[in-house]
């Protein structure tokens, strides 16, 4: 039997899984797109992140020009990622992540909704969200 070379590619799958378990979410995402094999390694284990948040703020009544962007914040092993989207798109992505990947788990989930009209068209239906995500 040939001896495995001391490089990542030749590590047994279970060792790669162990190494990946110590990576933060951002690094896991980077590794995932390196090769098909690495995608398999990253996808083989459930992903648990420390914090996942959605910040939504309603556009002020007197500002008719543009919407306040909504922010999705993700924090894992002291590494924070944040991105702005339109409120509608942000809500879509937020829910879709849980729908698409059942292995995706979050320790702390926060939804900040500021100044939104509770009866308006853009309100977030948290009840449905939990039902979908659960």
């Amino acid at each position: 039997m040939s001896k495995p070379q001391p490089i990542w590619q030749h590590l047994p799958f279970h060792l790669k899984e162990d190494v990946v378990s110590y990576l933060d979410f951002k690094s896991k995402c980077s590794l995932r797109i390196c090769s098909k094999d690495d995608q398999k390694v990253v996808d083989s284990r459930p992903i648990t992140i420390d914090y996942f948040g959605l910040n939504l703020t309603e556009r002020p009544v007197d500002d008719v020009h543009e919407e306040t962007p909504a922010e999705i914040v993700l924090r894992d092993k002291n590494v924070t990622m944040s991105r702005f989207f339109t409120p509608h798109l942000a809500t879509e992505y937020f829910i879709r992540i849980f729908k698409l990947d059942e292995k995706f788990k979050v320790n702390t989930l926060k939804i900040h909704v500021r100044n939104y009209n509770r009866h308006g068209n853009h309100s977030v239906n948290v009840g449905n969200f939990w039902a979908d995500a659960g």
Binding site: L15, L23, S27, S30, C34, S35, V79
Partner: peptide, 26 residues
């Protein structure tokens, strides 16, 4: 050891990870 290997690529881009861990492209 596994923690140390993980620390090698923490916060790195895919290109940097490929270089550090000598991962060939598909």
């Amino acid at each position: 050891c596994c923690k140390q290997v993980a620390m090698m690529v923490k916060g790195k881009s895919p290109e940097e990870i490929r270089e550090i861990w000598m991962i060939p492209t598909d």
